[in-house]
Amino acid sequence: MMFSPEIVMAAVLNGVMTGSVYALIALGLTLVYGVLHIINFAHGAMLTAAMFAVFVGHAVFRIDPYAMIAVVAPLFFALGYALQRWVIGPAAHGSESNVLLVTLGLSIMIENALLAGFRSDTRSIDVPYAFSSLDLGFTFLSVPRLVAFGVSIAVAFLLWLLLARTDAGKAIRAVAKEPTGAELVGIRVEHVFAVTFGLGAACVAVAACLLMPTFYVSPRIGNAFVLVAFTIVVLGGMGSIPGAVLGALFVGVVESLSGLFFNESLAQLGVFLIFILVLLLRPRGLFGAKA
C-alpha cells in the first residue's frame, strides 16, 4: 500500500513525538538498571499511579497538568526513594530474582489498589490547549505533543548532566561501577541506590504529566507503555542513557510506520518481536553500550 510522502512524513514525525515520551519512561528503567542492576517491574504501575495523581490534581484541585510536574516529580522521587530504601532493598536480601518478585508484587498491589479506588473506567482531562496545533503544511503538529517532546529531551539532558557533572552523579556512577569500593571510600550505597530509584520514579512522574493532556488513564494503562520501555532499554543497552533515548525514538518511528503500513494490532507484535530478537541475538543492545 502506498501513501503520499506527506502522510509518511507525518507518521515519522508522530513516531518521534511518541518516542520521546517512551524515552522518558525508558530512562527511569535504564537508570535503575544501570546502577542497581535490577529490573523494576513496578515501573508501569508507578506510571499509572502518577497519571492518576495528575488526573486527580486536575479534576479536584484544578491544577494544570504541566504545573503538576512541580508536584508529582518531587512526590514520586520521595516515594521511589522510600520504596527502594525501606521496602525493595531490605525485602530483596540482595538477590536479583527477589527484586523481580518484590517489584512484581508491588506492581500488582499498586495496579489493583488503583482499580479498587477508581474502577476500570478510562478517564481523561480536558485542557484548553489540548487541540491547539501548528500547521506544518503537510500535517498539524499537536502543541501538547511538541511540549512533551521538548520536556522529555530536556529531562534526558539534565539527567545526563547530573550524572556527568555533579558530585551526586559521581557518587552514583561510582556505586554503579563498584558498589563495594564505593562503600569503602565512604559513599552510603543504600542511600545512592534509593536516590537513583527516586530519580527513576520522578522520570515516570514527568512522563505522566506530559501524557495526560492528550491521553487517558485506566488502572492497567501503565502496562501498555512499560513493555515498550523494556524493549527500548534492551535495545539501547541496559543502563545506557543515550541508548535509551535513541532506542525510544527508533521504536517510536518503527511502531508508527508499521502501524501505517500494516496495522496497529500487528505493530504491537512487531515491538515484542524486536524485543525477543535483540535479547536472543544482541543482549547487550543494538547501540553498542557496554555491558
Binding site: P90, A91, A92, G105
Partner: peptide, 22 residues
C-alpha cells in the same frame, strides 16, 4: 465486590513472604 482487592492482597503477600519467609 470491590474489584482488585483480592489481587492487592496477593501482591502484599508476595512481598511479605519474600521479605520475611524465604
Amino acid at each position: 465486590r470491590i474489584p482488585g482487592i483480592d489481587l492487592v492482597l496477593f501482591g502484599l503477600l508476595l512481598v511479605l513472604v519474600i521479605a520475611f519467609m524465604r
